[in-house]
Amino acid sequence: MIFDFAGKKTGIKYYLIFGILPLLFAAFFSVSADKTENQFDDESLKCLGCHSSPRYEFKDTVTGDVVVRKMHSELQIDPVEYINATHGAFKCTDCHSPDFNIHPHPASTRFEINYNCLDCHGGDDMYASFNFETIEEEFLKSTHASHMGEGFSCWSCHNPHIYKLSDKEIGQLTNRVARNNAACLTCHGDVNNYAVLIEKELPDLLISHDFLPNQSLHFRKVRCLDCHAANNDSILVAHHLLPAEQSVRKCVECHSTNSILMASLYKHQAYERRNKLGFYNGVIMNEAYVIGANRNYYLNVASIVIFIMVIIGIAIHATLRYIHRRNNNGY
């Protein structure tokens, strides 16, 4: 039966309202839901059965006993972090050898060679804007590549299981800085991890950065690489890590209107030099305040005008007093 609001047959309108449009809505939402939410496949869930836990069990093939072992922290994967990470849509064996499906894992898996960014993204038009080739070039010039060679790869800093492309997002600067710096501190703030990479005593960061006033504020508000990497305009984040002696040490490189932070930490939002309220590098002020970089144009002008007016006032007053004194003394 066709329901008619006005007692008349509505035909096409009726089918449009109650039939086609809801179907289109349902189709749209189901597609968008598929796009945003990654889901684990059965194979990966099996992997996570052990790798999401601090301990795992396996059956000894000789004795038949069930053995419980500690899962090394580096091999533990947080399923929530992974599913929300940039590569969270992949199943484990997209990047790892299918031999990992065998339990216990065979010895061959120990010698697996990991993919690097360029193995997938090299020459890829879809990701051309990221300039992965330039990132690679810049990385090869870095102190990490030159000192550690093969022992240091993309994954040394970017944990593929939690890596999230979020530097473009405005807001939550402190979180973004903390996430970035955490990658550096994995080695530079951990004696054991540092010792794995290089036979050298780990420098105490608090001592080597003792020249910074308000040290903790600098650590919370600025990324390590803002001072320790050379900027390259064609990539979003600098990858040419510099040796300590070549890093930024002059305060005015950030604390001035030509602040280098606008070419690094605030690169994505640095479309304006002076905002509507007249602040230089106004975008910084959404989340921080940098003395010398965030001066205000209008206040500058007002202060100079007031100063000049005061000096002129004083000069006129002094001149008039001088003339009076001269006249009184009969010059």
């Binding site: 020249f211 006033p213 002059k250 305060c251 005015v252 490189e253 604390h255 001035s256 209107t257 030509n258 003395i291 010398g292 001066r295």
Partner: peptide
């Protein structure tokens, strides 16, 4: 500090601080 400029430093920034 307020008008810091790498080319014309009145007082070196860290010393000024």
């Amino acid at each position: 500090m307020q008008y810091s400029n790498p080319d014309y430093p009145l007082i070196r920034f860290d010393i000024a601080v």
